[in-house]
């Protein structure tokens, strides 16, 4: 553990990622207390530039405060990113572990399913899913989880498959350990590092996907997210750059921070890659 922290923090990039991400989490948590009136309240003239009185980041096409919108948008991004990843992890780890450990027809089936999801254009499928389920926060989360769990299952299955044949796991079997004990005490601790790395990256890509859906008008109509802020101000981009630039930068910073963290975790958790 100490080794892990030392390696993780010895890289400036993971530290930067952690600081940015922590800041965004704090903003998201504090938003309802700082901006009690909510993101949809009109506070002034439309398209006021940043620095106008009381408007640090200007106002949008409807005259709403961009700062408030950005703060509330962080809530949606993080909520969707984290919950959809957790759902995908739940399904993917369970199926991947069972398939990788026991093999057989279940493994064959799972491999076919994950291959299927790799080959079909999952964003188009996601559009269909969300459109058919009616756009809402929950349909976005369900949709993203449904198209991303095979990715987790694949990683978990691969780890379990290779660890299963390692000699220390075979030794555990000869020592009379049951399957559950072997999975929990022998395989899982060794399989977790890549899973952790993949999940940190998945949160980032889920945030990107959510913003893309909202941009296309497939987000929850009752919530303001970074993607819908960009989509809503497309027509104003020519005259008021801040309406599109700022939410985009917010998305980029969040995803970048998560990828930095993932990279740092990868280095710290994977001794083979340390060079």
């Amino acid at each position: 553990m100490r080794d892990f922290l030392r390696v993780f923090f010895s890289r400036p990039i993971s530290l930067i990622g952690l600081v940015i991400f922590a800041a965004i989490v704090v903003i998201a948590l504090l938003a309802p207390f700082l901006f009690v009136r909510g993101p949809f309240t009109i506070v002034g003239m439309p398209l006021l530039p940043p620095g106008a009185p009381g408007l640090l980041a200007g106002s949008d096409v409807l005259g709403r405060d961009m700062v408030v919108g950005l703060a509330y948008g962080a809530r949606i991004s993080l909520l969707v990113g984290i919950t959809s990843t957790l759902c995908a992890l739940g399904i993917g780890m369970l199926l991947g572990a069972v398939a990788g450990y026991y093999g057989g027809w279940l493994d064959d089936l799972l491999m076919r399913v994950t291959e299927f999801f790799q080959i079909i254009p999952s964003f188009v499928l996601l559009m269909v899913l969300v459109a058919f389920l009616q756009p809402s926060l929950s349909s976005t989360v369900i949709g993203i989880a449904l198209v991303t769990w095979p990715q987790v299952a694949r990683v978990v299955r691969g780890e379990f498959l290779s660890l299963r044949s390692r000699e220390f796991v075979q030794a555990a079997r000869t020592l009379g350990m049951g399957d559950a004990r072997i999975i929990v005490t022998q395989i899982l601790p060794n399989a977790l590092p890549p899973i952790i790395v993949v999940s940190s990256m998945m949160v980032g890509s889920a945030i990107l996907t959510e913003s893309a859906l909202s941009f296309l008008g497939l987000g929850d109509p009752n919530l303001l997210s970074w993607g819908s802020m960009i989509g809503g101000s497309r027509s104003a981009m020519w005259v008021a750059w801040w309406t599109t630039v700022l939410p985009g930068v917010a998305i980029m910073l969040t995803v970048l921070a998560l990828n930095f963290i993932g990279d740092g975790l990868n280095d710290a958790l994977n001794p083979r890659r340390r060079r």
Partner: peptide, 19 residues
């Protein structure tokens, strides 16, 4: 099971690195 035991070939992969 406990009465038949085994010593493995690879001194590296036969021990769980995290225990």
């Amino acid at each position: 099971r406990r009465r038949i035991q085994m010593v493995f070939q690879d001194p590296f992969s036969s021990l769980n690195p995290r225990e």
